[in-house]
């Protein structure tokens, strides 16, 4: 518990960003997720984020960084073996943390919707597209019969499909079409926040571009805020205004997307950007060294220190707090100079 209390102090800086931005829609403060069996060994630790109404935030990180778990925790959908051990999630005026299961169900799909990485597997294989959408319209808007079917058809048209797809089963759709159907379903409840967890990772590049364009257009039309998670800086650069970089369950850097891409402050961000294959020449600039051990959020000191060439003695003992630097915040004792 002491680690938690210590963490709480570090959550303060990003909140000043929150305060500065107009009206934060989603506010995550000090979110900590741990296995039920080992509550003292968190997998996501002390994560603070905010998405302004109508705005966009991208979370970038490698597998195991806790970015998807953060989304699931926001939705109150953590898998059974895990539990939120600290922090709060607030959506608009409402605090989601601590709500009963029934109250949470009422929020999902209406105020906040999510689309996942594997669109084909995200659709019930024995239900047609039409029945899935009309079901959601009955659930969220009380629509039945022909009006529901008409709105379902309009939703499909809105995502670049058509009425023809109403009787289709998921296996008759391509990956791109399935993700469009998921998007239509997510919009059925007219949510104010859309969470997209690696929405285009399973898709081909040309289809990926179509989907990102679609998300952009839908946001412009509906004013929905976006929390997008990706391992791909290109996707983030395309669709998010703010970025948070996660490593080993913690946010290590957060900044406006241009600032982060041009002047990364955390050595991990820098290394990750250098790992993108270069446009010219044969060699990477400076790829990160392999992780020799699994980095853990609960470990003392900076989780990235073993792989960091800037690391000093202090990095191994004291966990750096997220502190203001240039346009953003960085959790590093020796940030990269501009």
């Amino acid at each position: 518990m002491s680690a938690l209390a210590e963490g709480a102090a570090h959550t303060l800086p990003p909140l000043s960003v929150v305060a500065a931005s107009p009206a934060p829609l989603l506010r995550v403060e000090g979110l900590t997720v741990a296995p039920r069996a080992a509550p003292a060994a968190p997998i996501v630790a002390d994560v603070s984020l905010s998405v302004p109404a109508g705005g966009s935030l991208g979370i970038v990180g490698e597998s195991g960084s806790g970015k998807s778990l953060t989304c699931l925790a926001v939705m109150g959908l953590l898998p059974r073996p895990l539990i939120q051990t600290g922090g709060t999630v607030r959506l608009g005026e409402r605090t989601l943390t601590g709500l009963s299961a029934r109250e949470l169900v009422a929020e999902r799909g209406r105020r906040v919707a999510i689309v996942f990485q594997d669109p084909v597997a995200s659709l019930n294989p024995v239900r047609t597209v039409g029945r899935g959408l009309t079901g959601l319209l009955r659930l969220h808007r009380g629509l039945l019969g022909t009006p529901a079917r008409d709105v379902a058809a309009r939703l499909l048209e809105g995502v670049g499909l058509s009425r023809r797809h109403l009787p289709a089963y998921p296996h008759e759709l391509s990956g791109g079409q399935s993700q469009r159907v998921m998007m239509a379903g997510a919009l059925a409840g007219e949510p104010s926040l859309l969470i997209a967890d690696e929405p285009t990772t399973a898709l081909d590049v040309t289809t990926q571009l179509q989907l990102l364009d679609l998300i952009e257009r839908l946001r412009a039309e509906t004013g929905t805020a976006l929390l997008i998670v990706s391992h791909d800086f290109g996707v983030i650069a395309r669709s998010a205004e703010q970025v948070a970089v996660m490593y080993a369950g913690r946010v290590v850097e957060t900044a406006p997307v241009r600032a982060l891409l041009r002047r990364p402050a955390h050595p991990y961000t820098l290394g990750l950007l250098a790992s993108v294959p270069p446009e010219h020449g044969r060699a990477h600039r400076a790829p990160l060294p392999p992780a020799t051990t699994v980095a853990r959020a609960g470990a003392p000191g900076c989780a990235f220190a073993p792989r960091c060439e800037r690391a000093g003695e202090i990095c191994r003992h004291a966990r750096p707090p997220l502190a203001r630097l240039r346009e953003g915040f960085v959790a590093c004792h020796h940030p990269v100079p501009a």
Binding site: L77, A121, S122, P125, L136
Partner: peptide, 25 residues
């Protein structure tokens, strides 16, 4: 399976997920 998680995320109550998504499959 992901579609069960997706059904929960879409706001279906647990019993509806069981009847609509789990049992038919």
């Amino acid at each position: 399976q992901p579609h069960v998680l997706a059904a929960h995320a879409q706001g279906w109550p647990g019993r509806a997920v069981m009847l609509r998504d789990v049992l038919p499959n």
